[in-house]
Amino acid sequence: MTESQKPISTQQLNFAGLSRADYRGLQSTLCQGCGHNSIASQIIAACFELGLKPEQVVKYSGIGCSSKSPTYFLSRSFGFNGLHGRMPSLALGGSFGDISLKGIGISGDGDTASIGLGQFKHLVRRNLPLVYIVENNGVYGLTKGQFSATAERGLKLKKQGTNPYLPVDIAMEALVANASFVARSFAGDPKQVKELIKAAFSHKGIAVIDIISPCVTFNNQEGTIHSYTFGKDHEDPLHEISFVPARDEIMVQDFEEGTVREVEMHDGSTIILKKLEADYDPTDRWQALRILQEAQENNWLVTGLIYFNPEPPSIYDLFNLPDEPLNRMVESQLRPAKSVLTDINQSLR
């Protein structure tokens, strides 16, 4: 961007020399009070604070209320609103255009856990570097209040009666599919949401964040597990999370000795987890599975960084890709010489 194009602003500028306004999207058309709006705000805040240029970010989504939200943040980023439940494949192909870009996918519980469970799990298994946010409210909003696959058994909805089936636990599905970054959060805990998103952007692989995001219109009854009141009363954070980008120095004196756990990320960033009641080690997959199981059995809304492993190769590591983005390549790099075809013809005689 040239100097003259920069918005004239007295606002604070970030590391990339941009103001918060540069990260805005269009006005939300979701319901007042929808959890998804709060998540969109935290995506804006996270990208601004990280100093990611909007041009470096590519947005993907499926279909549903959640999937409308990519237009409510980062208007200067490319985005693709794909098919219901099939955003993962779109994001995978789109990412190969220029692997230096950062992808963020926004999905919902219907989109990921019902129609899209297959593509979701295959994307996780392939470890595409992508911030994969599920805005989970247990209900279909756009079609006016049907059960989704994450709705709890026994949930009563106005026109649907009682849900007879057990729910899909997105974090657990991600974990058993070998996700390398699994988190759960609550739209009513914006600071945690923001810090998790920041950490997710630094992860070299799939980063699944299952965010309980209440639907104020169809599924916000007192006591149901996707409601604001349930979240407020039952949220049980594993730790207080803060993200420190590689460029910043960690001020150890900020923390009392033995009260924090530092997790190094692949790009040199650090996730700082401040211990709460009990120590929790997010690099232990067994412990992660156990905590999810216990949360399920005891009706806790367990939040925070559930599992993290910076080691597994990302899908890009499995290819012999050049530094130059594939989508900038030209004919001379892509069409073999005439003599090559002459040899091929010769070999087929």
Binding site: R86, P88, S89, L92, S95, H122
Partner: peptide, 13 residues
Amino acid sequence: LAAIGMATGAGWA
């Protein structure tokens, strides 16, 4: 469906 989804993403990119 995933195959053409990937191709569509790549073509778009």
